Amino acid sequence: MNAEVQCLVPVARFTPPPLHTVKAANALARGYFKPQFTGLENVNPINPALLVGNHTIYGMLDGPLLFEKLYESKGIVLRSLGDHMHFKVPLWRDVLKQSGAVPGTRENCARLMEAGEHILVYPGGGREVAKRKGEKYKLTWKTRTGFCYMAIKHQYPIIPVASLGADDAFDVVLDAYDFMRTPVARRILKSKLISNQTANGDLLMPLAKGIGPTLIPRPEKFYFSFGEPIDTRPYAGQENNKERLWQLRYQVMQSLERELEKLRVMRAGDSDVGLWRKLLTKRK
């Protein structure tokens, strides 16, 4: 099977799991993180869109809850474009494939758009997952404009979707910068295989702690906000214009940051937290 056929298989032959299976799989996380959603009226089931989100630490906690909510409330089976790094993680890659996620390539994205799917992408990719100290909710998009190219080319509206809570469930103890300063790291990264797999150390995951010294995440409430769709029709035919790509990227980034700020305000005014959650998190 050649690479192109491998690319087509998960797009063309995907059968979504039943909603009850998704809800059962998410039952523990749903009760633990108690997700709240706002702006769902901005997502139209009959008008496919490219949802652009902020990636949170480790990239595994909030995505399944977002998938479930859109499936349950809108009948939308969200197709995710995942960083290749995710598909190298045992078990997690199986969860991704079963939920319809595909490697984030332009070819996969094009086929999903041609099929009229609702698509989720995180422009920050693996680097935004591999948080450094002080990078909570920071958008680390480097020079990526591919999602803008695809949205313009296929005339897909872009919906910013912000996620707040997951980055507060952990504290980063050691990050990639700490590791790469050590003689051991410098020696390890001399290996071309390891260097390539980690993008020269860029994708090294942080060592974090949640409850006490453990990796159990603190039970922070999760908040999600869907912003107003960004119309890409004014950019029609300009997918190869770098200046226009950067203009659209900036527009999306600003909109996403506004949604994150809305969620911070929402969280600050949320009194429905509960004593046990207050005790195990840093909420006052």
Rank of each mutant, 00 (worst) to 15 (best):
M1T: 13
N2H: 12
E4F: 14
V5P: 00
V5K: 13
F14E: 06
F14V: 00
V22S: 05
N26H: 05
L28P: 02
L28K: 07
R30H: 14
Y32D: 05
F33T: 04
K34E: 15
P35H: 12
L40Y: 01
I46Y: 07
A49S: 15
N54R: 05
T56S: 15
M60W: 14
P64G: 07
L66E: 06
F67L: 11
E72T: 12
L78P: 01
R79V: 00
S80F: 12
D83W: 07
M85K: 08
K88S: 12
P90D: 07
W92Y: 15
R93K: 15
D94H: 13
D94C: 09
L96C: 13
S99K: 14
A101V: 13
P103Y: 14
P103C: 09
G104M: 02
T105K: 06
R106L: 15
C109F: 13
L112D: 01
A115Y: 00
H118P: 03
I119V: 15
V121Q: 04
Y122I: 04
P123M: 07
G124S: 04
G125E: 04
G126Y: 08
R127H: 12
V129R: 06
A130W: 05
K131C: 05
R132A: 11
Y137D: 09
T140W: 15
W141R: 03
T143Q: 09
F147E: 01
M150H: 01
H154V: 02
P157T: 00
I158S: 04
A162T: 08
A162V: 07
A162H: 10
M180W: 07
T182M: 14
P183R: 14
L189G: 00
S191A: 12
I194A: 09
N200V: 06
G201M: 03
L203E: 05
L204D: 02
G210Y: 11
G210I: 10
I211N: 03
L215F: 12
E220V: 07
Y223D: 09
S225F: 09
G227E: 06
Y235T: 04
N241V: 04
K242R: 11
K242N: 06
R249E: 09
M253Y: 12
E259Y: 03
M266Y: 10
R267F: 01
V273W: 06
V273S: 07
T281S: 08
